[in-house]
Amino acid sequence: MSLEPNFTTDGGDWVCARCNVPLEQIKVQALYMHSAFDVFLPRCPSCGLTLIPRTLAEGKMAEVEALLEDK
């Protein structure tokens, strides 16, 4: 299965405030209601802090959440 690094930041170059290093596209697993989703997201390679871009949070993630909750 393709796991393209397709969820990038909504704009600009983001840097982890704690580690002061640029975020990289890293594969992470999002868990919600017994379902796991492997996606590439901007993440701090040092501390693991992950940025969920606003477009993703308000878009596909919100839709997936609605589906899982069956609302």
């Binding site: 299965m1 393709s2 796991l3 393209e4 397709n6 969820f7 999002a30 379902s35 796991a36 989703f37 492997d38 996606v39 590439f40 993703l56 596909k60 993630m61 839709e63 997936v64 589906l67």
Partner: peptide, 10 residues
């Protein structure tokens, strides 16, 4: 469109 788990799930 279909390159990630969220899209595939949807």
């Amino acid at each position: 469109a279909l390159n990630d788990d969220f899209s595939r799930f949807l």
